[in-house]
Amino acid sequence: MHLAYPAVLSALLFCTGLYGVLARRNAILVLMSVELMLNAVNLNLVAFDVWLSKAAEETLHSGQALTLFTIAIAAAEIGIGLAIVLAVYRNRGTSDIDKLRDTAEGHEPDGPDTDAPATGPAAEKAEATA
């Protein structure tokens, strides 16, 4: 098999995930796009490992071992990420990452010294759940 096929597919999948991370607004959809990017890297690792395991004399199968590690780390990442998203949702009442602008600079409505969330429904929700 030509090595360009898996490499090109991996590059395209990575860029699809990149678009999703940049363009999506829901935090869980952003996590899905991150999964796509990680899978693109996995495909690259597997393809190059298969190529090198036939081309080289001795191989450690490092590509496949790294792929397994990436899969495990992605599973841990999705668990932690979802826990963070759920905690944010419980406190703010939204998982919309465009509205979570507390640390943004030059954003007026909720400055750094007002600890209450800015928008009305979110504040009510935070008080209700706290």
């Binding site: 030509h2 090595l3 360009a4 490499a7 990575f14 190529w51």
Partner: peptide, 16 residues
């Protein structure tokens, strides 16, 4: 990425 990858591995084949 596609340009670089195709240019770099144009003459490489995986032996399956």
């Amino acid at each position: 990425l596609v340009w670089v990858v195709v240019d770099a591995f144009r003459t490489t084949w995986i032996d399956l």
